[in-house]
Write a protein that binds this DNA or RNA. Structure first.
Length: 475
RNA sequence: GUCCCCAUCGUCUAGCUUGGCCUAGGACGCCGGCCUUUCAAGCCGGCAACACGGGUUCAAAUCCCGUUGGGGACACCA
């Protein structure tokens, strides 16, 4: 924790128009990391001033996503819609001070003028038509516009991008109150950021151009201007802004495919930020090491393969008990509740250690546990046809016969039995193990053959070999 | 069109602030090998980048300018 920065207050301010997506989560993560690093406060604020597009379901989804990712907030969630009166009041203050004015240009008229300007290759900003008309107490539908400075420059010292200079001449007189009386985003953020004591505005790159419009608003309202940090965008494989057409973008989707939150968070933090060559960070390490000094200023392409690799790493690191717990909801979703399972001694926890080295996602892992925890085993017909042949049947049968007397039933005792058969029948390990594997698991890949038998136990092992022999013609 | 941002392997990045240690490092993926009862994992090795052009300098991936390319923003959305 650095001295002098412990009054840091940051916020994540999503608009609830859909579920939490990857880009939003990373913005939230950077905010959260910054707050935790400096021992400051992280605030969640829902920007729902657009009442047509905001939904309660979206708010719920965002909250759920944040919780899943482990990003806890210290204040909120605040809803901007609860603060509309305050925003209106501030807007009226600006009007009284002559810093804002009524505008009666209709949306249609504005649209037409924009098109004309564009056709002529001119700037498409508002032409200031109503600026000096001094309209008061409008009788027709009107919006309130903020009188942006037109002279000089607005300079933003961005924590990530450095100094950015904007000519005030390009600034629009932005609408701060709609004709329906509702405040707009630019007014609401400024007021809320100021009143909530936000010290650092950490948000997506796409807001860079909003900054020079908001800075004068802070000043006009008499508020201190916060510091800004604009984090680079996340791009799809074609280098355009990440969107649905690039595949799954909602955080929830990754949860459903079986990603661990730690893996997603680790992936996201490395997308744009780095600490030397280190790839894997515990949450604690991220908090300790995170800094805007090493945040990239260029956009980054989202790469599924690397995420998957990280997920596999985290699966390998997880203990059996933890994994078994993570797997439960996935099993239930497939209709396997606790009673429907034929669990080996030790439960799913006993199976998991053999699968965690192999699985990339939890969904994959669940699928692989099935041969050990369900009955009857699902048979891969193609594999059965290929490997469960009359040629191998006698050896399988012999093996089953001898295994009956084996005690205890373990790798140590099974290995000599199997070796003897290989010798007697002049078989290679591969030619015998593969049919046996298919007989036992119904598929061509599995953990080691002895481990499989241990997991199944003697009874189920014999039963499955028997069933396999039955399906071999003329044996 | 206007404004803003950006530019190292296919991708994420180290190096750039304080030029020489860079024959440009790591990671994912890919290819090959080892291990091996399958599938993975693991281990070893390989391919692969300083966008281009000018400067400045004894010396530039690193500093400056330009070009090109990419991204973003230009709503009574946020």
């Amino acid at each position: 924790m650095k001295r002098g920065m412990n009054d840091v207050r940051v916020r994540f301010a999503p608009s609830p128009t859909g579920s939490l997506h990857i880009g939003g989560l990373r913005t939230a993560l950077f905010n959260w990391l910054f707050a935790r690093h400096h021992g400051g406060k992280f605030i969640l604020r829902i920007e729902d001033t657009d009442r047509d597009r905001s939904t309660d379901e979206a708010i719920e989804a965002i909250v759920k996503g944040m919780c899943w990712a482990g990003l806890d907030w210290d204040e909120g969630p605040h809803r901007q819609s609860d603060r509309l009166d305050l925003h209106r009041q501030k807007a009226m203050e600006l009007l009284e001070q002559g810093k804002a004015y009524w505008c009666v240009c209709t949306p249609e008229a504005l649209e037409t003028r924009r098109k004309e300007a564009q056709a002529k290759g001119e700037s498409i900003k508002y032409d200031g038509r109503c600026r000096d008309r001094g309209l008061t107490a409008p009788t027709e539908p009107a919006v309130l516009r903020f009188q942006s400075p037109q002279l000089g420059q607005t300079v933003v010292e961005d924590l990530i991008k450095g100094t950015i200079v904007f000519e005030n001449a390009v600034l629009d007189d932005l609408i701060i109150l709609r004709s329906n009386g509702y405040p707009t985003y630019n007014l609401s953020v400024v007021i809320d950021d100021a009143l909530m004591g936000i010290t650092h505005v950490i948000r997506g790159d796409d807001h860079v151009n909003n900054t020079p419009r908001q800075v004068p608003l802070f000043e006009a309202l008499g508020y201190p201007v916060p510091k800004f940090a604009h984090v680079p965008m996340i791009l799809g494989s074609d280098k355009s802004r990440l969107s649905k057409r690039h595949g799954a973008t909602s955080v929830l989707a990754y949860q459903e495919i079986g990603y661990l939150p730690e893996a997603l968070v680790n992936y996201l933090v490395r997308l744009g930020w780095s600490h030397g060559d280190q790839e894997i960070f515990s949450i604690q390490e991220m908090i300790e090491k995170f800094s805007f000094d090493t945040v990239q200023s260029s956009a980054a392409v989202f790469n599924q393969e690397k995420l998957q690799w990280l997920n596999a790493e985290y699966i390998k690191q997880s203990g059996a008990r933890h994994l078994a717990e993570l797997l439960r909801p996935f099993l239930e979703k497939q209709g396997y509740d606790r009673d429907g399972l034929v669990q080996p001694p030790g439960g799913i926890e006993a199976v998991v250690p053999y699968l965690c080295e192999r699985a990339k996602t939890l969904v994959e892992m669940v699928e692989w546990t099935l041969p050990y925890i369900t009955e009857p085993v699902a048979m891969d017909e193609a594999a059965a046809g290929k490997f469960l042949t009359p040629t191998i049947a006698p050896s399988l049968n012999k093996f089953a016969e001898r295994v009956k007397t084996v005690a205890p039933f373990s790798k140590e005792t099974l290995e000599p039995v199997l070796d003897t058969i290989l010798e007697e029948d002049r078989l290679k390990m591969g030619t015998f193990a593969q049919p046996l594997r298919i007989a036992l698991t119904g598929r061509t890949f599995s953990p080691g053959i002895y481990e499989v038998m241990e997991l199944l136990g003697k009874e189920r092992t014999l039963q499955r070999i028997e069933q396999a022999l039955h399906r071999i013609p003329s044996s």
